[in-house]
Nucleic acid binder design. Structure first.
Lengths: 237, 237
DNA sequence: TAGTGGTCTAGACCACCAA
DNA sequence: TGGTGGTCTAGACCACTAG
């Protein structure tokens, strides 16, 4: 609605041109090598890499050391419409799975105690997982549960839904959830777990699950791949 | 919970060291120049810039051409708890304002018609604004309203809240909103409007406002600064 | 005008992958 | 082994800010 004449730096022109090429070439197509692009555009490889880097951050391109640079499959389709990752995904007919990285039993520090509304020093159960959709890692989650639930591990392997296990085994039903959503940047750990590059944008979501009485049942910190995930919320005014 | 030994590339060590320095120095503190840091760390300026770039993307640092690099004021405190930016901000005691970039009257294309559930070709009112908090640009919004509301401009200047104007002047009350939240990357236009760098992470939010009968009243595309904004949602299961 | 960050170059070596 | 992307260098010039 406002006419914006704009001429940016050279890498920006390259970037927009590559974006167009990627769109035409379609998913899975491979791009020329960085060195070839540098020749084609009459620039240095650095300039090409700056352009590619931003397109990777936007989820348009993927690149793998030793292999090459490719047009990403476009599917930012996953939403979080209800309250359970498992339910959401099943509803969309997606094959979901989890890798349990670890379960341990720390005592509540000041922050987690405040979130879960228990006394600092209370025993907690902490579950660290990577969530996958169609075999692709999508999220890294650390859930904090009040109490020491020592038989959680075996149960979780059967049914990937933490909420279902909490309800069926422990009688803790989540009736309401509070989410905060913000952006974050992948550090090397999250980048490795999610198979993305350091510096990629993430959605950082903190979720507090409450039972019908308003008692906290679960407090989870999750990072989701920013290029694959879309958060959905419906609010009555 | 999982021990992760990690030694990254050189720029990553510099980055984490600068992060610590920034934390110690406190908000508004100025960093040494890139050239000075290059000498201090025994690297090239390129390496220093890569470290700084990621800290800027995380909202830890700001930099301005010709001035220098500074520790950002930490305040990612703004939430969107209710349904109106104006209400949310007032509730938190923040000074908010808007700049109306333009109002025009396009006809609905296929996509906006689908969102607003009107026939393609229907007249719309489009309002493009920059939203500011404490004089700082925070969001860039383009709202689409069904119908041709030609006297909107003067009214909006008096009361910044589009929702309030829609209710008071046109009897359209928003009873429910649906938000989708995803990440995006600032292009040059958004970067200029929001006073951030190209490539900075953004929260891209699409909001559909419905009245009590479920009729769409407003459909808005917003980009929020990812380093300053936190989205909040409460959902009953 | 001096100094800052912004962009770009041409090249080097490394880490990883596939044949 | 050859080719890819990943990191890094030493330097150049430009655009912008401030005194």
């Amino acid at each position: 609605m406002i006419d914006r004449g704009f001429v940016g730096p050279k890498y920006y022109g390259v970037k927009e041109d590559l974006r167009r090429l990627a769109l035409e070439a379609g998913p899975e197509a491979s791009l020329p090598t960085e060195r070839a692009l540098a020749v084609r555009y009459g620039t240095s490889r650095t300039t090409i890499r700056q352009a590619i880097a931003e397109l990777v951050a936007e989820g348009i391109l993927n690149r793998t050391q030793g292999k090459g640079t490719f047009v990403a499959r476009e599917h930012r389709a996953y939403v979080r419409q209800r309250t359970s990752f498992t339910d959401d995904a099943r509803e969309q007919g997606l094959r979901i799975s989890s890798i349990v990285l670890g379960i341990d039993y720390p005592v509540a520090d000041e922050h987690s105690a405040g979130q879960l509304r228990v006394a600092p020093g209370t025993g907690l159960t902490r579950v660290e997982r990577v969530r996958l959709i169609d075999e692709e890692p999508l999220a890294h989650e650390v859930a904090h549960l009040p109490g020491t639930l020592t038989d959680l591990e075996q149960i979780l392997e059967q049914d990937g839904s933490l909420y279902a296990v909490l309800a069926a085994r422990y009688g803790r039903r989540v009736a309401e959830v509070e989410d905060t959503v913000e952006t974050s940047i992948a550090g090397p750990v999250d980048a490795g777990l999610l198979a993305i590059e350091t510096g990629s944008p993430l959605l950082l979501i903190h979720r507090l699950g409450l039972d019908a009485a308003g008692t906290p049942v679960e407090w989870t910190r999750s990072v989701f791949r920013g290029d694959r995930f879309r958060f959905f919320a419906r609010t009555h005014r």
